[in-house]
Design a protein around this nucleic acid. Structure first.
Lengths: 204, 204
DNA sequence: TGAAACATTGCAGATCCTGAAATTTTTCCC
DNA sequence: GGGAAAAATTTCAGGATCTGCAATGTTTCA
């Protein structure tokens, strides 16, 4: 009901599924924002959406996953964006463009993401999963980076390091964005972070 | 019995506690290395050490925490090392020295850490916690960095970014070290990663 | 030796999460 | 419209995680 963007070309069934999923996400976020992670049970969330708690687990493998949600780009989408950048562009710049694109995407729904980030800050156990839902994405992206850089993966360490640094830059930009209440442009903050990375993190 | 290094100046009670904790860590690691994370229950681990599963939870808040163990430097120790570096040394170099010190520390028990890393690689859900066992350490270090750089935290984003990048460098170095079977020096790999960071991650 | 301090344990119970079968809803074809 | 096939939801049973609490040992120290 709140945020169902790409409801094009879908039957009633799939539309309802998207709706239920979005409702569960939203209920999870608002409840946890109110009471804190530990004080919200799966049953609470399910009840708020009026489904059984078993249904909740048909949508999300865990309570945390409902908070992470499905708004983030998948690993495949990120890699696609990365691959779309011409090969002559240096790796770090390509990663910056990828991150910028994702930033602009998230910025389209500021309230949603600011609420999510608030929840993440208030419940630090969730923080490690902030970056593109864990290591799967990082693996995929670093594989794409290795291909682009023409390097054997896991020997030079360059793809892994560049990817990890880029993720870190993105994460820091998001936290700054949240801390500033969404005022500055997220894409701009991402740019700043990448500038610092590209400059070798000199003293400020 | 296996790895109790600093057993100096401790009564029998505390010695036994250290021993039990180390035994639980070790049992958790070996069992999970054999069977995989999902196929090992807390009861299995407790039984292998011959304590009740309730006792396990007196030592570790969760199964995962037993795998992470207590061998890593605490947030306070890392900050101490960081603060010990003269103020005129640039931030990134100070972080490098901190990381090197930690690397040399871990290197003193290669088998232990290689086993741990193997377990982490085989169970990716653990990976985000590899460095800095969560965000607490990262917060503490970035606060120390902010102090050193004379910057207000959370406005420039520099301390958070430098810290996150340093942690990423350390993590990547550890994974390379593990992938190479512990052959090269971990400290050397850390150095390489920081070199790349300091150079602004140019194409390799 | 005796008492205080602390570690371990068993137990009850809440929550998390999964598999399987039963039930309801949606789709689709005639 | 009617009815079978497909899919989503629900109920139920059950294992696993993790937390208090009270009871029982063990260590420490005076």
């Amino acid at each position: 009901m709140t945020i169902v963007d790409s409801a094009e070309e879908l039957g009633r069934r799939d539309r309802k599924k998207l709706e239920t999923r979005a409702a569960l996400e939203h209920a999870a976020l608002t409840l946890v924002a109110e009471r804190g992670l530990a004080a919200v049970t799966v049953e609470d969330i399910a009840e708020a959406v009026d489904v059984s708690s078993r249904t909740f687990f048909n949508y999300f493998p865990s309570k945390e996953d409902a908070l992470i949600g499905s708004g983030q780009a998948s690993a495949a989408e990120l890699c696609e964006r990365l691959n779309a950048v011409p090969a002559r562009v240096p790796v770090l710049e390509a990663l910056r463009l990828m991150a910028r694109a994702e930033a602009e995407h998230l910025q389209e729904q500021p309230e949603r993401w600011l609420l999510r980030l608030k929840v993440f800050e208030q419940n630090p156990s969730l923080l490690p999963r902030l970056v593109a839902s864990g290591s799967e994405t990082e693996r995929a992206v670093s594989a794409a980076v290795a291909r682009r850089a023409g390097v054997e993966p896991c020997t030079s360490g360059y793809p892994e390091l560049a990817t990890a640094a880029a993720m870190a830059a993105f994460r820091v930009a998001m936290l700054r964005w949240s801390a500033a209440g969404g005022r500055p442009s997220l894409a701009g903050l991402v740019d700043e972070a990448f500038d610092q990375l590209a400059a070798g993190l000199p003293n400020p």
